[in-house]
Every structure is written in C-alpha cells, then in structure tokens.
Design a protein around this nucleic acid. Structure first.
Length: 466
RNA sequence: UCCACAGUAGCUCAGUCGGUAGAGCAAGCGGCUGUUAACCGCUAGGUCGUAGGUUCGAGCCCUACCUGUGGAGCCA
C-alpha cells in the first residue's frame, strides 16, 4: 500500500519543492492578509509543528469558506510545496484546492480555543486535548518510549508475555483490588452461612483486576528465561495525588539465572536506553517540554543517560540520612520504610541523579523477595529518580522452596498461590525482575507535574470520564 | 482516607467595608499587514458550584454537600 505523506514527511523534506502534495488535517490558526490571501496552519499529529498553507483569494471558496475557517476545522488541501518567504518555516503549501471536511459548529464554545488552557481544564475535555501542543507531544513521546521499551527487550532476547487482566488471587501483593463480577448486586446469591456465594459468579470464585503481572510473568520466566510484561494494571486505592492512577501501564521484566546486581544493571541500562531513544526520536517534542513545561528536562535526561547510577545499600542510606543534619518529618531508623521526603533527599540532594537502593529489611518488603544471608535483609531494590521518587521497584526472587513456604504460610498464601509455589518445586532457578510505572516514567521524561496528563484518558478515584 | 486552598463570561482571573458584576484571552464583525500565540477598533456574552441559613439587602458572612487542585499516607 502506498501511504500518503504526512506533514512530518513534508517538513522533513521527503517531497521535493515544486511537487504536488496533499495535506489533510485540522486547522490551528488562520491569519488573513488583505493583499488577498490567508495563512492557515494545519496539524495532523505527525510532528510537533504543523505546516503553513497559503490560500489565495482566487480560490473559488475563498470568501464563503476559507475566511470562515477556525481552530478545529478539518480540511484537505492539494497544492504545491514551495519554499516559504516567512522566517518560521522552510516550506509551505500553496493551495490549489481546499476542501472543508468538517466545520466547528460553534467556534465560541469550541473547547480547545486558540489560546492557553490550564491542564486542569483540558482534563475535562480529554477527548479534544490531543489537539493541543502539549498533549500531542505527550502522545508522540509516549509512543516513542513504548516502542523503545519493546525494542530494548526484543534486542536482548526477551519475550513479551501477555499476562491476564482478570485474576482470582487477591494476594498478588499489597493494594486494594477492583472486583470483577457478574453477580446481581441487588440480589446476591448466599451460602448456607449467609456469605456471598462466589461459586455462582462468572469465574466460579472471587475475581479481580490485576495489580501486577509479575507472578504470572515468573511462570513464563521459568521456561522462556527472559520475559517481560507491558500492559494495564489496576489499583483501587483511594490515592488522590499527582503520582497515582487507578489504571496505569506497567513494565515488568523477569530474568532467569539473574541476581540482584544484574537486576540493578538491567534497570540502569533499560532507563538509559529508553531516554536515549526519546531524545533522539522526539527532538521537536522534547524541545517544547524543555522550553515551555519544565526548563532543563533535556539536560536532566542527558545527564542520566551519560552517568552511572549510584548504588547504595539501604543500611548505608539510613546512615546518610541520619548524618544529613536535615530535619525530617518522619523518623529515620533502620527497619523503617523510607518516606517520600527521605527518598527525595537521597536522589535530589545527596546524589543529584537516579540512585538504586538495595537490600532493604525483609519485614518491609514483599514475601517473594529473596532473603539475604544476614537473616535481616532481602534482595530488594528501588530506583529513585529526582523529582518523582520511586520509579522502579524490583528484587531477586526467593527461589528456595523451604524459605518461600515459611513466608507464604505466615501470610496464608500457599493455597491460592499453589501454582506459584510449584515453580520452586519443579526446576527452581535464581531469577530477578522489576516493575516500572510507565506513566511515572513519562512524567520524568517530559517534566509534566501530574501523572493524569501522561495517559490519554486518566482513571482516578471519582472519575472514569471518556 | 487526612490536611490546605479554590469554584464568578467559552477559557484565565479581578471583584475593596455586605449595597443587583469587570478585565484579558477566545469568539463574531470591521480595519491593517508575507503573516506566524499577528496587530488595532467595535459587538455580543453571567441563575457568581449546589442546597439551606443570617441580613432590609449576599459573589462576599455561616452550615452542609459536590467538584477540582496541591501536599501527606498507600504505592508504580
């Protein structure tokens, strides 16, 4: 199939000046010259910039259509690609025909006017916000990062595994789960004892939306050696912050025959790979974020790409915090989890770039993390990034059946997760992996403040609009 | 869930001591110009988040609720 050239292609010089081209897209602005022509800026989403179309008054529909074009109208233009006389662009299209495909029915109330809007307002018109500079740029960067993630793993022999969205185990980890059910809430089936009878439910048992693909991922890891998941994840926590979504995308690699050190090395290489790809592929969009959203984001990413991440043991981090002389709201003491303020101090002030903390106390980490020889800590790691805190959490997994059994028994998990236990009964191996919140990665890349602006249609407590 | 702040024109906001609402941008019309967040002029645009209450009188004071934002907790 022969695909038509996009505006990005025209701007990149893929059509010769003087050749006939067709541009289809949406009007951003129109400026008229009384010399008898109009400038129309057209965007089609293929690049940060649009292309300028010059429409002369000799066009048959000039006065009754072209002079009425405004932001949001869709058009198809055929004309000649010419060198621009203006300074802001190299080429423009001299229109020979301009067809209006769709008008804006009420320009005064068109939600995405030719003016600055707050992100807060644009969330209320999320179906139209991809037409703005910021959200168009975000959509392209999101895609670029997604593709880079798949490429990184593919080039290293990983298989992308599609783990289930619906799960029957409510013990995948901490966190509130969304219930999935077809039972009639107004007329629930009951057991003899009066409890809800979930054997009558669609799946024959209580079921939920997944909070992580990791446990299923481990099953494929212990056969395919290197796998990763990249898909939606759901948390029903009532978290109202700029860093939380009820529905978000998570990347979870799982590597057989790997230990914690290799896991940390992978996390670093992975982040650098993705950052480098976005910096290369989306220079136009990154320049916009750097200039208008968060000054210095490009330099920040470049420094992360070029510098080795600092690695630090949890125990040493505690010492650093205690010796910092800073007054923290929450106590710093070995055995306690680190608070946002502590993580921020370590990444932003003490180190100044991403830092990988390793070997946390077992008691504050998940049951599947491998117990260390000291009997107190486990092979867990968190990658802390300046500005957002924890961006990656991972660990070497507990592969010893007896050690895992002891932990699962204490939590009452061995019945529901019998199959997870089987992975240690049948050819167990050392393995490790991590989880990365994709939208958090995007806020870090772009410098956007609110995670709701890093996903097309955000789902948060109290809102599942669009 | 907790704490704080906010809700006035399509959007962003101002509104003094409680006395029946104003600007900028956007929009419409006109002017000017190879323009580029164009510029200049004119016009239109409001049940002040909702429901109660206090008062002769509420955008303003009080109560409740709703919604949004920031921070905390939980986490990715």
């Amino acid at each position: 199939m022969q695909w038509p050239l996009r505006i990005a292609d025209l701007l990149a010089g893929k059509a010769a000046v003087g050749s006939s081209v067709t541009v289809k897209g949406w009007v951003r602005t129109r400026r008229d010259s009384k010399a008898g022509f109009s400038f129309i800026n057209i965007h089609d989403g293929s690049a940060f910039d649009g292309i300028q179309v010059v429409a002369e008054q000799t066009l048959p529909n000039y006065s009754d259509e072209i002079l009425k074009l405004g932001a949001g109208c869709s058009v198809s233009i055929t004309g000649t690609l010419v060198a621009s006389q203006g300074k802001e662009q190299a080429v423009e299209v001299k229109a020979e025909t301009l067809t209006v495909l769709g008008w804006v029915d009420d320009p005064e109330t068109y939600p995405v006017a030719k003016k600055r809007h707050t992100f807060e307002y644009l969330r209320t018109v999320a179906h139209l916000r991809p037409r703005t500079n910021t959200f168009g740029a975000m959509a392209r960067i999101r895609n670029s990062a997604s593709q880079a993630i798949h490429r990184y793993f593919n080039e290293r022999g990983f298989y992308w595994v599609n783990t289930p969205i619906v799960t029957a185990s409510d013990c995948e980890g901490a966190g509130e789960l969304f219930r999935v059910s077809t039972l009639d809430l107004h007329n629930l089936p009951r057991t003899d004892k009066g409890a809800v009878d979930f054997t009558k439910d669609f799946f024959g048992s209580e079921s939920f939306l997944t909070v992580s693909g990791q446990l299923n991922g481990e099953a494929y890891c212990t056969a395919m050696s290197r796998i990763y998941t990249f898909g939606p994840t759901f948390r029903a926590e009532n978290s109202n912050t700029s860093r939380h979504l009820a529905e978000f995308w998570m990347v979870e690699p799982e590597v057989a025959f790997a230990d914690l050190k290799q896991n940390a090395d992978m996390a670093e290489e992975f982040l650098q790979y993705v950052f480098r790809a976005v910096l290369n592929e989306r220079q136009d969009d990154m320049a916009f974020f750097d200039q208008h959203i968060s000054q210095g984001v490009i330099a920040r990413l470049e420094s992360v790409v070029n510098a080795e991440f600092v690695r630090m043991d949890y125990s040493d981090a505690i010492t650093v915090l205690q010796k910092s002389g800073k007054k923290f709201e929450f106590p710093v003491q070995w055995g306690l989890d680190l608070q946002s303020e502590h993580e921020r101090y370590l990444a932003e002030e003490h180190v100044g770039r991403p830092v990988i903390l390793m070997n946390y106390p077992q008691a504050i980490k998940a049951f599947y993390m491998r117990a260390n020889e000291d009997g107190k800590t486990c092979a867990a790691m968190d990658v802390l990034a300046p500005g957002i805190g924890e961006i990656i959490g991972g660990s070497q997994r507990e592969e010893r059946l007896d050690v895992l059994d002891a932990k699962m028994q204490a939590l009452g998990l061995q019945e529901g997760l019998w199959w997870y236990r089987d992975l240690r009964r049948y050819g167990t191996i050392p393995h490790a992996g991590f989880g990365l919140g994709f939208e958090r990665l995007l806020t870090y890349i772009t410098g956007m403040d609110n995670i709701r602006d890093a996903i097309p249609f955000p789902r948060v407590p109290g809102s599942a609009l669009f």
